[in-house]
Amino acid sequence: MAPCRPPSRSDEATFMVKFTIGDALPVETTRNPLAHTPRFDITTPAVTVAQYADMAGRERLLGTTFGSTQWLWAASDDAFFDQESRELVGISFFVPPLFAPAHAGVPSAGPPSRSAGLRADAGEAFELPQATAFRCDPEAAELRCVQDPGLIDVVPDARIGIARDLALLVRDGRMIGWSLTDPARYVTSGLAEPESAPPSPLTRLRLAECLALISEPLVEAVRDQDPDAWRTLRQTERALREQSDDLRRRDVLYEVVGRLIEDHAS
C-alpha cells in the first residue's frame, strides 16, 4: 500500500487517507469522527472513546459490530466498526508499560491532526496489538503511544483525529501508534465521564509523574525499594495530598499513587 500523503490546504474539502490498522485491516477516512468524549482511566490505564459506560454496554456493542477483539481481557486494543456501515463507532487503547523519556533533538510532532472518521474496507475481524512504549512530557501536553519503542521519535506522515484530542499516527501507509493531547483533561476512574472544566497546571504535572511511576523502568525501582524511586513516589504523594484545586482528578491520581505505595511498601 502506498504511503499516505498529508493533505495540503487545497485538499480541505476532499481530505481522504487510506492506510492499514492492526495486522491487516485497510481503512479510509470519512467525515464522521467519533462524537464521544475520551475517557482516560488512569487506574488501568486506558483511553476509551465509545458509547458504553460499563461492561454490559460493551457486550451489547459487540453484538452489532466487528473489530479487533470479540472477548474480554484480550491482549489487544479494541476497535469497534458498525456491521452495516463499516464505520468506526468506538475504540479503546491501553497505555503501554514502557516509558520512553524525551531526548535532546527530538523532531517536531509532524503534521497537525485532521479530524476524520474511519471506514473499513471489509467487515472482517483483525488484530490490533497494544502499543509497547509511550512518552508523556513533564507538563502532560501530549501522551504518545507507539507499537515499537524505535518509533517513539518518528515523525508521522499524518495524524488522523478520530475523536476530540485523540489521533492515530500514520506512517508509510500504516498506523504506528496514537496520541492524546492534553491527557489530564480526560483523566477519570473506570468509564466515568471526565470533568468538563480544564485541568489545573498542577494536575498536568502530577499526571506526568504518575505515568512515569507506574511504568518501567521507574516502577521496577519502586518494587526493588530503590531510595531515589521511593523519594520520587513520596514527593508526588505529598504534592497530591496538598493540592487544593481540581479535586476530582486529584483524587483519582492520589488513588493510583496510594495503591502503588500500599502494594510495595516494606
Rank of each mutant, 00 (worst) to 15 (best):
S76P: 00
F81W: 04
E84P: 00
S68T: 05
L98K: 13
G105P: 12
W73M: 14
F81K: 06
L61F: 02
P97A: 13
D82N: 06
T69I: 10
P101A: 14
P107A: 10
S92F: 07
D78Q: 10
A79F: 06
P107S: 09
R86D: 04
R60E: 03
A100K: 03
H103R: 04
G67E: 00
E87P: 03
P101S: 13
G67P: 00
P96C: 04
T64I: 15
S92E: 15
F93I: 10
A74K: 13
E87W: 03
F81T: 06
A109S: 08
Q83H: 05
P101Q: 13
G67D: 00
A109M: 08
I91C: 07
Q70G: 09
F66R: 04
D77K: 03
D77W: 02
R86K: 09
H103F: 00
G63W: 00
H103G: 00
V95C: 08
F66C: 03
V106L: 12
F80K: 07
T64M: 13
W71R: 09
Q70P: 05
R58E: 08
A100Y: 04
A79V: 04
V106T: 14
L98S: 13
S85A: 10
G110A: 05
L62P: 03
F94R: 14
H103K: 05
F93P: 11
S108M: 11
G105H: 11
D82A: 05
F99S: 06
I91N: 06
W73N: 15
L72A: 13
Q83I: 07
P97E: 08
P107V: 13
A75Y: 11
F80T: 08
E87N: 08
G90F: 06
W71L: 02
S92Q: 15
P107Y: 10
Q83M: 07
A74T: 12
F80D: 07
L72W: 11
S108K: 14
D77S: 05
F99K: 03
V106M: 14
W73D: 15
L62I: 01
D77Q: 04
E87Q: 11
D82W: 01
T65K: 06
G63I: 00
V89E: 04
A104V: 11
Q83W: 01
P97V: 06
G90L: 10
W71M: 04
A74F: 12
G105W: 09
F80M: 13
L62Y: 00
R58M: 12
E84H: 10
A79H: 02
D77V: 03
P96R: 02
D77T: 03
G67Y: 00
F93C: 10
R60Y: 00
P97Q: 12
T64G: 14
S85D: 07
L98C: 12
L62M: 07
L98T: 15
W73F: 15
D77I: 05
H103P: 00
L61K: 09
I91F: 03
A74R: 12
A104D: 14
F99H: 14
S76F: 01
A102T: 10
R58V: 06
F99I: 03
L88V: 09
A75N: 12
A102V: 08
S68C: 01
S108C: 12
Q83G: 02
Q70V: 08
S68A: 02
S92W: 07
Q70F: 08
R60H: 01
G110D: 02
D78W: 07
F93K: 08
E59V: 08
Q83A: 09
S108T: 15
F80C: 07
V89P: 02
Q83F: 01
F93T: 09
